[in-house]
Amino acid sequence: MNEELTLIKQSIQGDDTAFLHVMKAYKMDLYKTAIAYLKNEHEALEAIQEVTFRAYKKIHTLREPSYMKTWLIRIMINYCNDQLKRKKRFIVNDEQIYSLGTTDNHTVIEIQDAMQQLDNTSREILTLMYFHGLKIKEIAEVMERPEGTVKTWLNKALKKFRDILEEKGGELDV
């Protein structure tokens, strides 16, 4: 962790090599976020390139090196939301379904469908919490909201998610 923080600090100071190492370290997290939102591998890879460019241009504005991951994910989420607004469509293909690492494809499809029925805020909170393993405090930082607000939104999102799954006859325990 100390080496990672050192690289981040060097990145903030303009060290291009350190920046590349940091981006490699967070590439999978950014990819998972992009796939969760865009549902298309090509668009997700394009998103990583764009977010890398945006982060490179603005790295000097990052005040707290320990928030690098949440800062990058926030940039990715904003980019993905912009793309979705432009396209107003969602694409799901077999490769993405298998990439989630489960053998029950029907369950994965139900989860993805339920996630798409949620509003953007609920989908964002659940993605950060369960796909990225962020804690309430980190989600609050990413979303630039108080922790209490994030907790309230999380509870509402989980309730809505459960309701959607129950309507479909799902037996998932979330």
Rank of each mutant, 00 (worst) to 15 (best):
K137A: 09
Y67T: 13
H42D: 15
S99C: 08
E141H: 11
F131I: 07
L100Q: 08
N40E: 09
T107L: 12
L158S: 05
D104P: 02
M23P: 06
K32E: 07
T107G: 11
T61Y: 10
A55S: 05
Q83F: 06
Y79P: 02
M115T: 09
G148C: 10
D173G: 13
V174P: 03
L5S: 02
T127A: 01
E95T: 13
I75Q: 08
T102M: 07
L128T: 03
D113H: 15
L118Y: 01
I48F: 06
T52E: 12
I75C: 06
K24W: 02
N120R: 15
R89T: 13
L154I: 07
K9C: 10
A25I: 07
K135W: 00
L45P: 02
S122Y: 04
I97T: 05
E41D: 12
I8E: 03
I77T: 06
T149P: 01
I8P: 06
E166L: 11
W153M: 12
A140S: 01
K135M: 00
L7T: 04
Q83T: 13
L134G: 03
H106K: 14
Q112C: 15
Q96I: 14
I111A: 11
T149W: 15
E124R: 12
E147W: 06
Q112Y: 14
T61P: 00
I97K: 03
I77F: 03
V150C: 01
E3R: 14
M143I: 00
K69W: 02
Y37F: 15
Q13N: 14
T33S: 09
G148L: 14
Y67N: 11
K69E: 10
Y67G: 04
V22P: 00
I59E: 02
E110P: 07
L154K: 15
Y79A: 03
K85S: 11
L172C: 11
C80R: 02
D113V: 13
K32P: 02
L30E: 03
L158V: 09
Q117C: 14
A36W: 09
S122T: 08
R63H: 10
H106S: 14
P65G: 05
V150R: 00
T52L: 07
T107C: 10
E95P: 00
E46W: 04
W153H: 14
E64W: 07
K135L: 00
I125Y: 03
D29H: 06
S66H: 09
E147F: 05
T6E: 15
H60V: 04
L100R: 07
K24A: 12
Y98K: 09
